[in-house]
Amino acid sequence: MTTPISAHVLREPRGTFQLADGIELGDPRPDEVLVRYHSTGLCHTDLFARDVFHQAEFPAAVYGHEGIGVVEAVGAGVTDFAEGDRVMASYASCGRCRTCLTGRPFNCVQFNDINFALARADGSYKATADGQPVGSSFFGQSSFGTHALVSERDLAKVPEWVAPDDEYLLGPLGCGVQTGAGAILNVLRPGPTDSLVISGTGAVGLSGLLAAAAAGVGTIIAVDIIPERLALAPDLGATHVIDGNEEDQVEQIHDLTGGGATHAFDTTGVAPVLTRLVDGLAWGGNLGIVGAAPGMTLDLLPVMQLGRRVQGIVEGNSVPRVFIPQLLELRRQGRFPLEKLVTTYPFAELEQAIAATNAGEAVKAVLVH
């Protein structure tokens, strides 16, 4: 038996996502769960896949990787979930490599191969259309559809106390929000007497800002070139903002922090921005980096000379089943107002959500079924 679904399908590199019916999803394998999505977030990684990853020789594909929904069926070997459970999907990992077995699935040695694949690890496809394969395993979930087959390992339960009306907020916790918040809470860990510079105030950067405010960080500086984002930052907890177009950014950081920031977090992957962040650090300061851009480089001399540290961060170094409930608890306490980042769109309006995101009108766009 198969499950008929609708999904936003990409058929050519840099093309448009087109909502299509007539896609058939297979039955769950022993370790898989059939999820009917209620909503899904839009992440820049989806657009990276559209523009860079998707190749002409690939089949039609369904992307999306910030899904939340309800379990409709489970494979024979699934033990942690049952029909009717509310679940959030996050990134995929193999569960068998050294880093997975030591509690670091975010550093899975097969991370890229698994998450950027359009098929299962054995090469099989989860979905077909008119007898032809449809890529439907992006980050293990392909949430730009009404349904998906997701490995049990890649799911987290929605706590019972979360109101149904708030479910639309939770999908982004599976990637963008946990990446930003985890970078602060799991990796950099600044405290009340520390100072933090966040470069790039999109969904990831502002999630980090929310986390820093929740942790009581004393000085939080937001840097961006989009005035609307900078205007939002103080409402989320920033103590200062800096226009990323200004030439004296390093001097401003040193002035605001009394000699240099103890921590910095970059979400842009732009080489000149990284250089400024390193120069803005105090002796022994820490810089966390997520994402990358073509040609990204960093001069290590100023890093080594002043004992600074630079660390790459993947998915906020988060174990989703552990970290996502922590973020939800912070929100329940009123310390993580995630709703201030989210703008909703009907499920059919993916292209409109993309346009609004690219224009800076939406921080975190969420498609609601």
Rank of each mutant, 00 (worst) to 15 (best):
I289P: 04
G288P: 10
V70P: 09
T146Y: 10
Y345N: 05
G182A: 05
D224T: 00
A365P: 10
E152T: 08
D299K: 04
C175M: 03
L367R: 06
A127K: 03
L34D: 03
G284Y: 06
G295N: 10
L306N: 15
S39K: 01
Q249N: 12
Q311R: 15
G237N: 06
C175K: 10
Q55A: 15
D266W: 08
C94V: 00
G41L: 10
K157E: 01
H263W: 06
T179G: 07
Q110M: 12
A82S: 13
C108Q: 02
G218P: 04
I354R: 03
Y125W: 11
C43Y: 12
I354V: 12
S195M: 06
F58V: 00
V62G: 03
L47H: 06
E315I: 03
H369D: 13
A163F: 02
G258P: 11
I253K: 06
V250N: 08
P30C: 03
G260V: 05
T219S: 02
R332L: 00
A121T: 13
G182E: 01
G307E: 02
Q18D: 14
G291Q: 06
T219W: 12
L350Y: 01
T16N: 14
E32L: 06
E32A: 02
R96H: 14
N115F: 00
D80E: 15
V310K: 06
Q178A: 05
D224F: 07
N115T: 00
D235K: 15
H54A: 09
T179S: 14
S124M: 08
L300R: 04
A156I: 12
G208N: 01
S151I: 00
D224H: 04
V270C: 02
L188H: 12
S124L: 07
R120E: 15
A73R: 13
V162Q: 00
H8E: 01
V162L: 01
A362V: 09
G260K: 04
V368E: 03
G285D: 05
S137Y: 15
D85M: 03
V273W: 02
L155H: 05
N317Y: 15
A359F: 08
W161L: 04
L236F: 12
D243R: 10
G200M: 03
H254D: 12
P133T: 10
A56S: 14
S137P: 01
T102E: 09
E315T: 09
V187M: 11
A365V: 11
V109C: 12
E349A: 14
E361A: 15
E66I: 03
M304F: 15
L185Q: 13
G75Q: 08
A7P: 09
A231I: 05
T2V: 14
D255W: 13
C43Q: 07
L277S: 06
D31E: 13
L367C: 06
A231N: 11
R120V: 09
V314C: 11
M304P: 01
G218V: 06
T79W: 09
A356L: 10
R335H: 13
L25H: 02
P30I: 01
T219R: 08
L350N: 08
D113Q: 15
T102M: 02
G360Y: 12
T79P: 10
T343S: 14
E160I: 01
E246K: 13
G182T: 07
H254S: 07
L328T: 11
G131P: 10
L206Y: 04
L173C: 14
D248N: 11
L256A: 07
S195C: 02
A183N: 11
T2Q: 09
G316W: 04
P4K: 11
R14H: 13
H240D: 15
A293D: 10
